[in-house]
């Protein structure tokens, strides 16, 4: 049973294949961008604010607060990256109620791409904040012997992030498929509702974990600058 939208080819031209993952990703992107554009072209700064603007303001300020709670000084710096992760994953998962639609997050390619983005973003943010040399030295701490373990930890973290999102979204689809073949209509509906909840939770977890990774990288620098500060755990389980 192959349920990955990668294998659903919608268009093929001279060996280039346009699969459902890409197309639905574009759909989600178009929805997000057009929706934002429609609201932000008529932004109000007065007392009366449209309900859609209120919605967007609440979403943006909530994401900022969450980023701040993880422990960063400047949430505006991470807002585009973390916010987009959350909004994209949440929208992609919530649209699962639309018939015919297959969530692109149900494809391991998408989750891997997002995880790779996080993998690259962590050192980029860290280097941007402290400089290349300082960043590279963290792999030799507390002793150069730890270099291989640090590298393995970095990659395993990325893979875990990708597989966690993929597994959770994919599992929903797989469970619905199995229940449709086993039980009549009622259970798939309940599972579909549950899928909406888990989809939202996954979006939250993915974004928060990405922020925790980025934040821990910058915190380890602050900890090395002030030895009294306690080293915080960088691993957060589900």
């Amino acid at each position: 049973m192959d349920m990955s939208p990668d294998s659903w080819i919608l268009y093929e031209w001279q060996g280039w294949r346009l699969n459902a993952t890409i197309v639905f990703t574009w759909a989600v992107m178009a929805l997000l961008v057009l929706g934002s554009w429609a609201v932000t072209t008529r932004l109000s700064e007065g007392e009366t604010v449209s309900r859609w603007q209120v919605l967007l303001e609440v979403v943006v300020s909530t994401i900022r607060d969450q980023i701040e709670e993880v422990g960063t000084d400047d949430p505006g710096r991470y807002l585009p990256f973390i916010g987009t992760l959350f909004l994209f994953i949440a929208t992609a998962n919530l649209l699962a109620v639309v018939p015919v639609y297959e969530p692109p997050t149900g494809s391991l390619s998408t989750t891997a791409a997002l995880a790779i983005c996080v993998l690259i973003a962590v050192p980029l943010f860290s280097i941007g904040e402290r400089g290349l040399g300082s960043y590279l030295r963290t792999y030799l701490q507390p002793t150069p012997l730890m270099l291989p373990f640090n590298l393995v930890g970095e990659f395993s973290r990325t893979i875990a992030l990708a597989v966690r999102l993929y597994g959770n979204v994919m599992s929903g689809t797989v469970i619905v498929g199995i229940l449709i073949s086993v039980a009549p209509f009622f259970f798939p509906v309940v599972m579909q509702l549950l899928g909406l909840l888990t989809g939202l939770i996954q979006a939250y977890i993915f974004a928060i974990l990405a922020m925790v990774y980025i934040g821990s990288a910058s915190r380890s620098r602050r900890a090395s600058e002030s030895p009294a500060a306690s080293q915080q755990s960088t691993e957060t389980g589900e």
């Binding site: 554009w37 967007l56 983005c117």
Partner: peptide
């Protein structure tokens, strides 16, 4: 796609709203 989305949302959502 993701990087494009980040740029678009920064352009149309985060900056105007904030």
């Amino acid at each position: 796609n993701f990087l494009v989305l980040v740029w678009l949302l920064q352009r149309f959502l985060y900056r105007p709203i904030t």
